[in-house]
Amino acid sequence: MNTVLSAMALDYPPEKLSVYLSDDGGSSPTLRVLERLVLLLEEVLSSGGSVQTWWNEQRIWMIKSVTVYTYGSLDAILKWVGLRKASFVPTNKVAKEGQITLYQKGKFSYQASTVLLAPMVALIILNMVSLVGRVARMFIPGTWKYMFGQVFLTLYNVALNFPVIEGMLLRKDEGRIPFSVSLLSVVFSLAFLYLGSIAL
């Protein structure tokens, strides 16, 4: 939700934006997020995990919430309405040599369907645009107290999804995000920003 609010309100005055997000410029939502993260970190560490395990769990949760849960819910609704019949398509689950190598290096392989990758990449692009806009607006005198919570949450999202950004921009191996997916996601992001600018 932070992505949507940040992206849609990119051109909105920060003193008015704070009224819509919270009465105190976003610090209450920020504290709730921090509390949740600390409690989860404590749980992971007490069960023998590491900080890296906790960080990866955050990444996987974010990826699942954007892709799997969205498409699963959409599929269930379409079946319930009667627009889609249940189907089963077997797929190959055998790992390729390149995927095993990437896994051993601790890197994600983005050799997946465009339908799964495009929404996730589009949201990350929106987060990057929002972060740049928010940081730029923090330098306007008197807006620091309004922008801190928004910048923190957006920075957290960008940092959490750095492997996806790396897969889009930096990696050259076979597990990178295809250029066509990145381009499609940029188009989705621009369309969303345009619609947001019209709505606000």
Rank of each mutant, 00 (worst) to 15 (best):
M1L: 09
N2K: 07
T3M: 10
L5Q: 08
L5N: 07
L5W: 12
M8H: 10
A9R: 14
A9K: 13
A9S: 14
P13Q: 03
P14A: 10
E15P: 03
E15R: 14
L17R: 13
V19P: 04
S22M: 03
S22P: 15
D23Q: 12
G25A: 08
G26K: 05
S27G: 03
T30P: 01
T30V: 09
L31V: 08
R32T: 11
L34R: 12
L34A: 15
E35R: 11
R36F: 06
V38N: 13
L39M: 13
L40W: 08
L40Q: 15
E43N: 12
E43C: 11
V44C: 11
L45G: 07
S46T: 10
G48Q: 09
V51S: 11
V51H: 10
Q52I: 08
T53A: 11
N56S: 10
N56R: 14
N56M: 11
Q58K: 13
R59V: 09
I60T: 13
W61N: 12
K64F: 03
S65D: 15
V66Y: 06
T67C: 13
V68C: 04
V68N: 04
T70D: 08
G72T: 07
G72W: 03
G72C: 08
G72S: 13
D75E: 08
K79V: 00
K79N: 01
L83R: 02
A86S: 05
F88W: 07
F88M: 02
N92T: 05
A95S: 12
G98V: 02
G98Y: 03
I100C: 05
Q104H: 09
F108A: 06
Q111F: 01
Q111E: 09
Q111D: 09
Q111T: 04
T114L: 00
T114G: 00
V115C: 02
V115Y: 05
L116F: 01
P119H: 03
M120D: 01
M120Q: 02
N127A: 10
N127P: 07
N127F: 01
N127C: 07
V132W: 11
V132T: 10
R134L: 14
V135L: 12
A136R: 12
A136I: 04
M138N: 11
M138C: 15
M138W: 05
P141Q: 05
T143M: 08
W144Q: 11
Y146A: 10
Y146V: 03
M147E: 15
G149L: 05
G149F: 04
V151C: 14
V151D: 05
V151H: 07
F152M: 12
L153D: 04
N157Q: 13
L160R: 12
N161M: 14
V164E: 05
G167S: 12
G167M: 06
L169F: 15
L170I: 13
K172D: 04
K172E: 08
D173C: 10
D173S: 06
E174R: 07
G175W: 00
I177C: 02
I177S: 01
S180R: 06
L183Y: 01
L184S: 12
V187A: 01
L190A: 05
L193P: 15
L193T: 04
Y194C: 05
S197D: 07
S197Q: 14
L200Q: 10
